[in-house]
Nucleic acid binder design. Structure first.
Length: 261
DNA sequence: ATGACTGATGGAATCAGA
């Protein structure tokens, strides 16, 4: 089972690139973030024509998440991260596909830090930690996939010393990520590439991609029920090198599932 | 410390991203 996460940075502008990648990669599941489109502007027909069915939570201008499944409709089991009924931002959606619970998330950026946006990021993170604990306790096969807006360690940043005061790399942010993983989650990409520099995002500025000045901020975390099923992982860097790319590259894992999953 | 680049909104300039 091939499961991918891709921050598209605007699904309207990115639709041709998304369809090209879907056609080539044919993932079983694709989690999308930063749709930047209201609910009624999601390009459902084009997605369907590509062989996918989708659920999505849109929002005007910013945020927005979707789960696509090849040849089937994801069974939605959650929309909006629990823990704050006043949170209006579309950053979390959850579905079951082929017996696997897929959580698609777009964690807040949090800059500038300190400040109210950073406070919101940390609060959102605590809600995610609380919810993720429930998912772990359920014993279900779960994948937490998305743009976490966190570089977990120094080797996930091209120049860590330049990012120490950034909301994506501050100690509070890294601590939250490590507390989440410590519940029992497997960081798929890091597990498959221990000690290697592997990035998922390159800024549009200053020829960041050409210089490989990247960040690893898109993650796929596996619950204990799935940790033994991890067979492969990767980042589709070539997609970032194309015309009119997102600043993120598709990031994916392959799971070998037995019939009881 | 700043700005460079891109998308959305709205129809110019600003916000947000990371």
């Amino acid at each position: 089972m091939l499961i991918a996460t891709f921050n598209v940075n605007g699904i309207t502008s990115r639709l041709p690139a998304l369809l090209q990648w879907l056609g080539e990669k044919q993932p079983d599941v694709a989690c999308l973030q930063e749709l930047k489109a209201p609910q009624e502007k999601f390009p459902e027909a084009a997605i369907n024509e590509a062989g996918y069915q989708a659920i999505w939570h849109g929002q005007k201008s910013w945020n927005g998440v979707a789960i696509l499944a090849r040849g089937e409709l994801p069974l939605e089991v959650g929309r909006g991260l629990p823990g704050d009924p006043d949170d209006e931002q579309s950053r979390y959606i959850e579905a079951v596909v082929n017996g696997v619970l897929i959580a698609c998330l777009y964690l807040p950026n949090g800059n500038p830090a300190p400040g109210p946006k950073f406070d919101y990021k940390l609060q959102w993170f605590e809600r995610l930690i609380t919810h993720a604990a429930r998912l772990i306790d359920s014993g279900a096969p779960v994948v937490l996939a998305g743009d976490f807006n966190v570089m977990p360690t120094d080797i996930d940043v091209y120049k860590p010393e330049r990012w120490v005061n950034d909301a994506l790399f501050r100690p509070e942010t890294r601590d939250a990520f490590h507390r989440l993983v410590a519940q029992g989650w497997t960081d798929s990409l890091r597990t498959m590439f221990p000690g290697e520099r592997i990035y998922t995002f390159w800024d549009y500025f200053r020829n960041a991609f050409g210089r490989d000045a990247g960040l690893r901020i898109d993650h796929l975390l596996l619950s204990p029920a799935l940790s033994g099923a991890l067979k492969a992982a990767g980042v589709d860097r070539d997609v970032r090198a194309r015309e009119k790319p997102s600043d993120h590259a598709p990031t994916w894992i392959e799971l070998a599932l037995d019939s009881k999953a």
